[in-house]
Amino acid sequence: MPFLEEHQSPLINDSNGNTLVQIRNLKKWFPVRRSLFSKIKPDERFVHAVDGVSLGIRKEEAISIVGESGCGKTTLARLMLRLLEPTEGTILFESRDLFATTKAEMHKLRVQIQAVFQDPYSSLDPKKTVLQIVSEPLEVNHLTKRGRETLERVSYSLSAVGLDPPPRFLAKFPYELSGGQRQRVAIARAMVVNPRLIIADEPVSMLDASIRAEILNVMLNLRDKFNLTYVFITHDLAVARYVSDRMAVMYLGRVVEVGPADEICLNPTHPYTKALLSALPTTDPRKRHEGVELKGEVPSAVRIPAGCRFRPRCLYAFDKCNAEPELIKVGKDHYAACWLGEAS
């Protein structure tokens, strides 16, 4: 599988040995569910949720995967958590293939990669107390014996996310907590096993705008304190910029632009990134700008457009766009999958 194209390799594997996760030409296609009488055309048999993603995640960085619904970012997150098996390609965690490990090894790896989910209301079992919820990863992976040790580790975790003093929260049920507190519990649960990588799937999109900062700050502080690596999945570019060092923009199952967050927001190369940025509502009422630079609706992931997949909606398409571009270097550590980027 010649997936390490020349211009891709620094993307996947930073040669300083700084790479924690390597995503190699990952694909996940879901078969289309057919009802008894529908005829499925041969090229419409799969939903191409993730369609060839190659990306390296560096140690202790915070990287956001940004895109709208249907772009594949959530599927990518599930693949990284090994909740799904890939159709093609693989993910290496510290040079070990996540999908080729034995059960015993998988246990050890699982503990290194933990997750925080989107909905603080349904990601906690309503029938369990905070203690039970946060101690579950310890219990499931047989990391502690019951009793004192569990209590201490859970308390430490709760303290780390700002739920102080821990004894006050241990016996509470989720319905007794606010949205922000629940999300903190979810973070504490992810932290309790001392992971190296945390994947956060839209961790703040269901919280009120005024408490988002609360949770984001908790996560950032934890990163500094515990040398964590974060992958943030979000559709909100402003949040992505605030919270991450690097940003990867996804469209229809592929990464179309990746680079330092500030750089991408100030100098976007790919037209889709530009459209996303132009779509952000302003925060200054004096600077209201008109519309989005985009045509049409998001196509279904079943029939990926031929050539550059963004072409049908792109305002700048030209003849070269008949061929699907790979990620090309357009700046320092900045790559875009667009033929327009070749000029620079």
Partner: peptide, 19 residues
């Protein structure tokens, strides 16, 4: 406080505050 808690694209990163 509400105004301080929205991340602004136009400026460089500052610590967002919350209530």
């Amino acid at each position: 406080a509400l105004l301080k808690s929205i991340p602004k694209m136009e400026q460089t990163k500052t610590q967002l505050s919350y209530i």
